[in-house]
Design a protein around this nucleic acid. Structure first.
Lengths: 269, 269
DNA sequence: CGTGGTATTGACAAGTCTCAAGACGAGTGG
DNA sequence: CCACTCGTCTTGAGACTTGTCAATACCACG
């Protein structure tokens, strides 16, 4: 294996676009966080809303910018503050089991939301941690619920994102209950690929912001099984992993392995 | 083993309250379905809303009553109609995998909602089937989204239920990825017990409206493993199964087995 | 050039799935 | 009342996959 992704100078090794984009997210975070100037508008909760409502909504939102890597956003048990939308970077959410094990419940990329789990019970049920330099918007949901006008700005998109989230969780359940190690990995990579593509990044070569351990905690496998699964997919020439940089060399075969879950391509409207 | 639950005349065998209640759900369905007379008000989406908004909302709702057992409510691929709220009876939702296997994604009891998964993609992603005589309300979500006044009647409760649903799905994921067969069963029974209790039914003795096969399809196990898990829990004197009637004989031990997931009791506000 | 965290690989044990046989209960028809 | 059948459920034995434990490789960092 050669050097780490994104920093390599070997021109023969493909450079994942998002490695640069993600690692330089400080640029975005440093920009104005005014909604009407935000680069995330197209994927934001407010997408499609009229500017007046958005500007009223904006006053309620907490904009958190340029948080460093491995920083806690909320912890399990914290009083419910609101829901979060990733503007740049990436976030993992996890739950600690009674035996102390960490279970990762999701990875979240720009344009995606997390944290609604805490509304019920008025307490965050997931710990959220940045995986790289990350900026976020926090919507204080309870205050929002009492403001009709502001709510209108997010409503339709919000439900859509929630619906997508439910689907993602269902898919993950199927994965966890039915699929073998290398199939789970295929689903995982396929899902990431689709999510990167939606954000106009390369879907065939990307950098994983999370460690193998985190992948294993998400896929419900041991670290070793994940490693073996990577080796198997590489042996079958579906992917070409280079550390955390993953090149997908046979999309069709990968899709077919992942197919047990992603029967139909679902695209956000 | 003696005769089927709820019909037995042997006074020594405990009779699950819900066996009677669920099987006679036609009574409820036959009642007026006007919201202000509905027995489900306390658990409905409209709980806590003012009567005026509810009566406006009511005009949009489809009330489906007294559907027989094993009847399809929606099928995967159907155009998205709206979300459903169970008024009486019970419903299972499932997805068909590419290999033709059926995966059960959830069981739904009175006061619980399902179907939002279909909003994203504008198509139902789950097939919903009644497990016994069942009555439902259907909320045409898209039409609802354009009516602000009517929306007010369901908003807060809706998000709360969604949040609960997300939690349930997270819990199921943990279960599927970390727990062994008999622990999964313990979680399943513990969860059902809590949900029955919330509806003021017995939490220590109840009738399962689903077959062992359905349980296995929900728990991500083979039918045989579920059967063995029942046998194990019975051997350890945690439960006393009698066909589909389950008596919980050691709540504490069951809770402790299920504890890996249900760390803290979460109660709906 | 060590050192520590991360990742890979191998050998064995544990748990679940599959296949197969049998038990039980409800319903049917004689 | 019985024998029969069908679907559901239980139980057993072997195969398979993954988890666990242990050793080793790799890379970034000081």
């Amino acid at each position: 294996m050669s050097s780490l992704a994104g920093i390599t100078v070997d021109p023969a090794v493909p450079t994942p676009i998002n490695a640069v984009q993600l690692n330089s997210s400080k640029c975005h975070a440093a920009r104005s966080v005014r909604c009407d100037a935000c680069w995330m508008q197209r994927l934001c909760l407010t997408a499609g809303s009229n500017a007046v409502n958005v500007s009223r909504l904006e006053k309620l939102i907490d904009h958190w910018r340029a948080m460093p890597k491995e920083k806690y956003i909320v912890r399990e048990g914290d009083p419910f503050s609101g829901i979060f939308l990733v503007r740049s970077g990436s976030v993992k959410t996890c739950q600690t089991l009674v035996n102390g094990e960490e279970q990762i419940t999701g990875f979240h990329f720009p344009g995606e939301i997390f944290g609604l789990e805490g509304l019920f019970g008025n307490m965050h049920t997931n710990t959220a941690v940045t995986m790289e330099t990350t900026s976020l918007c926090m919507l204080p949901l309870k205050r929002l619920l009492s403001r009709r006008q502001e709510l209108l700005a997010v409503e339709p998109r919000f439900l859509l994102l929630l619906s997508e989230l439910l689907n993602r969780k269902d898919d993950r359940s199927v994965m966890l209950s039915k699929l073998r190690a290398h199939e789970r990995l295929a689903v995982f990579l396929w899902d990431l690929s689709a999510r990167f593509e939606r954000r106009r990044l390369s879907s065939s070569c990307f950098y994983l912001p999370m460690s193998r351990t985190d992948v294993s905690r998400y896929l419900g496998l041991s670290l070793e099984s994940v490693s073996r699964a990577f080796a198997l997919l590489e042996k079958d020439q579906l992917i070409k992993p280079n550390g955390r940089t993953i090149e997908i060399t046979d999309k069709l075969a990968l899709a077919s392995l992942a197919g047990a879950v992603y029967e139909s391509q679902r695209e956000i409207a």
